[in-house]
């Protein structure tokens, strides 16, 4: 079973999914879903579309260089079956996946490190710049034009009670 990568978003294409377009020079473009195919037809560059893997790699959102990526590779020669090797591979898959997930989490944490402080700094700046928009409560009491006029609404509670009596 060969798992291909989507030309546009680099996600895995499982057998029976997606569409492939063969250009006249025999280059094959595989797409995981119609979304990617449509974006290709619109001649969009995957490096400029934010949700693709190409964009995220290019802009340092994801891990790019890691030894765990070495395992996922296209091999054109079939491996000779060996029971021991297969067993070890199946064991290794779980471990490698755990290592990769941990490293990705660490990368994300590193990337998000100064975010909270930055947000607080920005909020403080906004407060400082636009404090004049906030009126003191005393000013509101003195100047009635700043508040909404009070409108009295008649409540027809009598009828509701009558209805309940009928029931």
């Amino acid at each position: 079973m060969r798992l291909e990568k989507c030309w546009f978003c680099s996600s895995t294409i499982y057998p029976g999914h997606g569409i492939q377009f063969v250009r006249n020079d025999a280059k094959i473009f595989r797409f995981c879903r119609s979304k990617c195919h449509k974006n290709f037809k619109m001649k969009r560059n995957p490096r400029k579309v934010k949700w693709t893997k190409a964009y995220r790699r290019l802009h340092g959102k994801d891990m790019t260089q890691d030894s765990t990526f070495e395992f996922e590779r296209k091999r054109n020669r079939p491996e000779r079956y060996d029971r021991n090797i297969t067993e070890n591979t199946l064991k290794a898959i779980k471990k490698i996946d755990k290592v990769r997930v941990d490293r990705e989490a660490r990368h994300h944490a590193k990337r998000m490190k100064g975010k909270k402080a930055k947000e607080q700094r920005e909020a403080a700046k906004e407060l400082e710049q636009s404090i004049h928009m906030v009126k003191a409560p005393v000013a509101l009491q003195q100047e009635p034009s700043l508040t909404l006029p009070k409108i009295k609404v008649k409540v027809s509670q009598q009828q509701a009670e009558e209805n309940r009596m009928e029931e």
Binding site: P15, H17, Q20, F21, V22, A26
Partner: peptide, 29 residues
């Protein structure tokens, strides 16, 4: 397998009534 394939253009290879190609070369994918 359920996936789809499409090409750039509409192209044909000429054959005789028995289904053997008339030409000796085929160009493109």
């Amino acid at each position: 397998d359920g996936s789809e394939v499409k090409f750039d253009d509409n192209a044909v290879v000429l054959v005789n009534k028995q289904g053997e190609p008339i030409g000796t070369r085929v160009f493109g994918p």
